[in-house]
């Protein structure tokens, strides 16, 4: 991990996940894995968040919710798909109500597979997301300078 210019905040939304990945996402913020030591805080408000963690696949009812949360987040923003269901649909890809991975609804930057995804993987993915966030911020700044 490089040095981040700011403390990124993250928001978590449970797509149609089985809870397994959700509790691992929460678990990675708990004392044992403690993602907060990188200055990362969990928030419930999409407008405060920089990193969007999605667990579970996208289905016909929640696709709009996922899009809505993504739209409410301010640029620059990074999306992390946590768990195999969020990446591709996993074991549920054949189900009648599952559209597929999160990338069917919004652009995904980091994929973290696993069933359930392990907290170590989540930490790695989030740190990768922080790097991407910095890159995006730099790019935005450069564009602003040009414009």
């Amino acid at each position: 991990m490089g040095y981040s210019s700011k403390s990124p905040w993250l928001i978590h939304y449970d797509g149609s996940s089985c809870n397994g990945c959700d509790i691992e996402v929460l678990d990675s913020m708990m004392p044992l894995y403690d993602i907060e030591r990188f200055g990362i805080i969990n928030t419930g408000n999409p407008k405060h968040a920089d990193i969007f963690l999605v667990t579970g696949s996208v289905n016909h009812q929640n696709i709009n919710v996922v899009k809505e949360i993504y739209d409410q987040m301010l640029e620059p923003k990074v999306v992390v798909a946590c768990g195999i269901c969020a990446c591709t649909g996993g074991v549920f890809r054949d189900c009648y109500n599952v559209i597929g991975g999160v990338d069917k609804a919004i652009p995904v930057d980091v994929y973290a597979p696993g069933c359930a995804v392990r907290p170590e993987t989540i930490i790695d993915a989030v740190l990768k997301a922080v790097d991407i966030l910095d890159e995006k911020a730099k790019k935005m700044k450069a564009e602003k300078g040009r414009g």
Binding site: G15, S16, N59, N62, D94, C95, Y96
Partner: peptide, 10 residues
């Protein structure tokens, strides 16, 4: 219905 996958059909 936000989490409904339909896995009984699987």
């Amino acid at each position: 219905g936000f989490v409904h996958r339909g896995l009984e059909k699987l």
